[in-house]
Design a protein around this nucleic acid. Sequence first.
DNA 1: GAGTTTGAAACT
DNA 2: CAGTTTCAAACTC
Length: 645
Amino acid sequence: MAPSYGIKADLKFNTELVPIEVVPFVPDGVERRKVLFETEIDLQEKSQAEGSEEEVAGCGWEDLISDGVDEMPIFDSSTVSETCKGQIENLVAKANKQTSSISGRVDVIDIPRNMQPDIAYGSCLQKAAEGPALDNNGEAGEQHGVDHTPQILSGASQKQAVNGQTQKIGEGNNACISLDCEVDSQIHRGMRRRCLVFEVSGVSGKDSNNNSTFHPSVSLPSTGKFTSDDRHLKLSRTGSSLSPHMLPGIGLHLNTLAAISKNRMVTPETLSSGRRLISMPCTISPFPPLTASSFDAEKDQFNGTDVQDLEGVHSDSSEVPTGGLGEDLNHMSPKKKKRKSDNGGESEACKRCNCKKSKCLKLYCECFAAGVYCVEPCSCQGCFNKPVHEETVLATRKQIESRNPLAFAPKVIRASEPLQDVGIQEETNKTPASARHKRGCNCKKSSCLKKYCECYQAGVGCSASCRCEACKNAFGRKDAGDEIEHVEEEMDDCEKQMDKPDDGQQNAVTHDNEHPFAGNILLVTPCFQICSGKPPRSSTSSIRYQTSRMLKKCDIPLPRSKIEKSFKAVPDDDTPEILRNDSSPSTGVKTSPNGKRVSPPHIGLDMSPNRKGGRKLILKSIPSFPSLSSTVADGYTVNYSVHPH
DNA sequence: GAGTTTGAAACT
DNA sequence: CAGTTTCAAACTC
C-alpha cells in the first residue's frame, strides 16, 4: 500500500509496534499499483460480502467523518498500536496547518467502510518504511502513487490533497474533496473517489455525481485567492460542516445541482426532510450541457458579475450585508434581463423568477420550488428566498412539505431511458415511455401544446395521470395507450422481481442487482431533469447520457448509500434512508376516488395512480425497489448501486 | 414592454 | 375534496 504521498511526511512512524508485513510492500510503481488494485478489489469484495448493512455504509461515513478526524473509524482499530495512531493523528494535524503544494488530485479516503484496520494502517507502516525516500520525493511519488493510494488520513489529508490550495477548513470539517472522476482508463480510481466524496465529504454523497463529473468547474465566486478547487472545497465544506448529519432527501437533485453550479451554492441547512436547500443560478435548466466548456463559459459569465451575490449565498446566514443589498439589487435589476436573453439557448437553464407577491416563498416561485435561492438574475420583489432569510425559507419549506411531502420533488420523473432519445422521440411524436410528469397536467385550453402544460414543458408526454383535455402533447398524448403499456411492461418486470419469494425491504435491496437495468441504467443527473424548462435537446442529452454512464460506472463498486439528484448524486447511500424517514408519507399512494389526483409519486418510475404497476412500487419500500433505484426521478437519483452477489 | 392567457398552487 | 382565488410563467400584441 502506498502511503499518502500527498502529505509531506516528516513524521516517523513507530513501526516496531506493528508487524510490518501487515501490508505488502511493493516498491515498484507498477507492481504497487497492481497490488493496490488487487487490494482494493479485495476490499470491495469484503465490503460487498458484508451484506445489506454495507449498502448504507455511505451514510455511516458521513457521521463518522463529520465529527472530526479523531473519530475516524480507521483509527479505532484495535489492532494498531496507540503509537501508530498518534502518528497518524499528528500527521493529520500537520496537514491541517500546511499549505500544501501538492499538485496531485485529491486522493481521498475511499477505503471501504469495512476495511480492516490492519489494512488501513498498512499505509502507515509502509510509509514509515519509505520514510526517507518520501521526504525527498513526496510530490513525485504522489504522481505515481496517489491514484491508487488509499489514504488513511481523514479530512485533513484530503484537504491537503486539494491541488495545493490553502485549506481553511475548520477542524472536524469534512474536507470537500473535489473528485475529478475523470472517466479515464483508471475507472477504479474514479469509483474510489466517488466513494470517497460522499463518504467523507459529509455532503451525503449526493454530490458524488457532481464531484466526479464537474469538479473542475464547480466553483464559488472567485475571490482571487481561491482556485476552483478551493471554491469547491469551500462549497462542500459549508454543506458538510454545518450539516454533518444531513439526511439525503427527496431534493437530492438539488444537492447535485448545487455542486455543479457555481453561482448558487448549497446552503448548510438541512431541510426538515433532510434536503438541502441549494442556491444555484444557472444550471438548473432541464438539460444543461455537462461539458466542461459550458461550465467554463458559465463561470466566466459568473465571474464577471455575481461574485457578491454568490458570496452572500454561500457564506451562510452570517453574511448579512450581501443579503439585504443583494435583494435590493435584485429588485432593481431590469425586470426581464432574464428570460428574454434566455430564449436564445442554453442560458435558458438559469432558474430565475419574477415573483412579486409570493416573496419567493411559495411554489409559485420557480426558484423556491426548485429548492434554490434566488439570485441576482431574478427579478423578484420582496424576495425572502435568500440565504439571509434562511430560517424563513426553511420554515416555509417545512410547512409546504407538511402539506405535501413531495412538494419539492421533481415534477418529472424519468426512468431508464436515455435522454438522448428524447429528441428523436420528440420528432416522432413519441414520448420517452418512462418519463412522466409525476402528477400529470390539468390543461384545458392549451391542448398540452404549450409550456403552460407542465408535461410539455418538461418534454414528456402526458400520461394516464393527466387530466388534460384535448391533449395533443407532442411528446405523447395521454391517450396513447401503447406508451402506457410500454411503461407497464417495465413495471411488470419490476413487479416480477418484487414478487420473488422473499420480499420486503431486504428483497428490494437485492433487486438492485437483479434488475436487468441495475447495471446499465443510465443515471441521469437530477439536476438536469429537475429543471424541466424546455424540451430536451438531443445534443446536450447525449452528453449527459455519456456522463451518466460514466458516473454509473463509478458507482458500481461503491458501498451503497443513498439521488439527484443529480446529481444529483445522489448518493446512493442516503437515498434509502431518506426515503424511509422523510418520504414515507409518499409511500402511500393517495389517489382520489376518481383517480384524478395522485399523491406525489414515488421515487423512481413515474407511476400513475391508474397504472397497475404503480401500487406495488409505491407500497413497497421505495428505496430498495430495483427499478427505482436504477432510475432517476428528476432529482432523485435513486441509488442502484450494484452489489455483486 | 404591457397586457392577456393559462394552469399550478394556494386557499376556502 | 371540490370549487375558487391567487400567482407567476407563458404567450400575444
